[in-house]
Design a protein around this nucleic acid. Structure first.
Lengths: 256, 256
DNA sequence: GAGCAATTTCTTGTATACAGGAAATGTTTT
DNA sequence: AAAACATTTCCTGTATACAAGAAATTGCTC
C-alpha cells in the first residue's frame, strides 16, 4: 500500500478487504500469527484467484524457497490444502492443484443445491437487519466489479455472497462444508468455465435478497435451486480433461 | 489371530471386518502402505471406539514412542485428525481428543438431518438389490451385537449403516462429509450419552429399509428425520461440559 | 502463610540431513 | 530402428537436532 493513496481509495480498499475477509480466514482456529497460516493464505488465495491453475505442480523445494521457510512448513500447508481437496498429493510424486473431474463437479453442485436450499428456513428465521444490509452491500460490490469488467473479483464476491448467506443459518459445521464446496467451485470454473460470464447471476442474488426480506421460504428455495442450476449449466463439461494438452487438435492446422 | 480359531469363527470375523471396512478406510486415496496410514487407523479406531475419550491429551512424544515412529509421522496424523475435527490442536499446547460443545452437537445433528433426509430421493433411485442386502445384513449384525450386549459394536454398526445408506446416493462429496459427521457423532455420544442404549433405534433401521424397498421417499424422509431426532433426544445435553468435575454438585450430599 | 517472581521442565515449532522411490533420459542389444 | 535395460536426477518420506514458548514448580519477599 503506497503512502500517496488518497482517503476515498483507502476507504474503498478497506471495505473490499472486509467484504472478502471471512472466506480466506475460514476454519483458522488460532490467530494467523504462525508461519504456516501466512503461507496457507497466500497459496489458497492464488488458487482461488486462478493465479495457480488446476494441474499446476507444487514442488516443496520451490515453494520453500519462494516463501523463505523450510519444507516442513510447506508440507504442513500442502497437507491442509489436500484435506480441503484443493490440491492433490500423490505418494512420492508430489502435489498439484486439483483438477476436478466432471463427476466431482456434478457432485459438488448437487451438494451445494442440497445444502443451500435446505437451510433457507433457518436463514429466514435468523436473519438480522445488519446481515441483510451486508448481503446487499456484497451484491452492490459484485455489480460494480462486473461493470468495471473485473470478472475475477466478481466471482470471488459471488462466492462470498453464498457463504455469508449460509452463515446466517448459524450452523458452523454446514458453513465450513460450504466453504470447501465454494473453493472447489472456483476450481471447477477454472477448468470448465473458461469463458465465464458472471453477468447472468448477479441479478439472481438481488432476487434472492428480495425474497429473503419478504420471508418467502418456498420461493427462496426455488430461486436458489434454479440459480445453482444456471451456474452448473453455464459450465462446459464436455471438455476433455486429459493430463496432457491435446496436441493433435492444437497442431491440426496447416500453419502452426 | 490365533491358529486355533475354527472356521465358523473365522468366517464370522472376516464378515465383521468386512462390515466395518469402509468407514475406517474412508477418504484414504492411496493404499494403506505408508506408516502414517497405519498410525492414523489405530488412533482413529481408538477414538471411535471410545478407548480414547474426549479431553484425553495426545502428546507427540508418547505416541511416537508407542508406535515406534518419529514425531514427524505423529504430527502428520494429528493434523489430519484435527482437520476432521476429531482432535483439537492448540498452538504450543498440544493435541487432545475433541470435546464437542452442546452447540456443536446440535449443529452436527442438524447437518445430519439435512443431508440424510435430503438425498433419500437419490438413494431410492440408485438402490441396487446387492446394496439392499448389505444394508439388511448390517441391521442383522447390529441386532446380534445388541443381544450379545456389545453396545460399542452396535454403535459402530449403526454408524456404518447410515454411512452405507448414504453411499447409495453416489455422491462422494456428501459421503465424505457424512463420514465426518458420523465420527463426530461418536464423540458426542461419548460426552453426552453415558448411559447410551442402542436398543431403541435398531428397529428404526429395519423400518427404514422396508420403506426404502417400497420406494416411498416421503415416508423415508419422515422416518429418517424422526430417527435422528430420537438419537439427539436420547442425549443428555444438560450436563455441564466443564474442564473440571463439578465438585460442588459431587460433594453436595452429607455423606460422601 | 500468601502472593509474586524467577526458573525449570515439558512440549511443540522449525530446520535440515539423509534415505529412498519414481520417472526421464541415455545406452545397449537384438 | 525398436525395445529392454541401466543410470541419473529429481522429488518426497522420515528421523533427528535445536529453538522457543507455555505451564508448573520452586524460591523469595512481605
Amino acid at each position: 500500500m503506497g503512502v500517496y493513496m488518497n482517503d476515498s481509495l483507502k476507504a474503498r480498499s478497506l471495505r473490499l478487504d472486509d467484504l472478502l475477509r471471512s472466506r480466506s480466514r475460514r476454519s483458522t482456529r488460532n490467530e494467523g500469527s504462525t508461519k504456516d497460516e501466512q503461507v496457507y493464505e497466500r497459496i489458497f488465495s492464488a488458487i482461488i484467484a486462478h493465479r495457480l491453475r488446476p494441474g499446476d505442480r507444487l514442488p516443496e523445494d520451490a515453494l520453500a524457497e519462494t516463501f523463505e521457510v523450510s519444507r516442513t512448513v510447506i508440507r504442513k500447508v500442502l497437507q491442509r490444502l489436500a484435506h480441503e481437496r484443493l490440491v492433490n498429493i500423490q505418494a512420492k510424486r508430489g502435489a498439484m492443484v486439483s483438477k476436478p473431474t466432471v463427476e466431482e463437479a456434478r457432485n459438488v453442485f448437487a451438494a451445494r443445491r442440497l445444502i443451500e436450499t435446505g437451510v433457507m428456513d433457518q436463514v429466514v428465521d435468523r436473519l438480522t437487519p445488519a446481515a441483510l444490509e451486508e448481503l446487499r452491500e456484497l451484491t452492490r460490490a459484485e455489480d460494480r466489479a462486473l461493470e468495471a469488467g473485473n470478472q475475477r473479483l466478481a466471482l470471488q464476491l459471488s462466492g462470498e455472497f453464498h457463504q455469508r448467506l449460509l452463515d446466517v443459518a448459524g450452523n458452523e459445521e454446514l458453513s465450513t462444508f460450504l466453504a470447501q464446496l465454494l473453493s472447489r467451485s472456483s476450481l471447477i470454473i477454472a477448468v470448465y468455465g473458461p469463458g465465464w460470464k458472471g453477468a447472468s447471476h448477479c441479478e439472481s442474488h438481488t432476487v434472492l435478497l428480495n425474497e429473503l426480506e419478504a420471508g418467502n421460504v418456498d420461493a427462496l428455495r426455488q430461486t436458489m435451486g434454479e440459480h445453482l442450476d444456471e451456474l452448473e449449466a453455464a459450465l462446459n463439461m464436455e471438455a476433455v480433461d486429459a493430463d496432457l494438452p491435446d496436441f493433435k487438435r492444437i497442431f491440426n492446422g496447416i500453419l502452426d
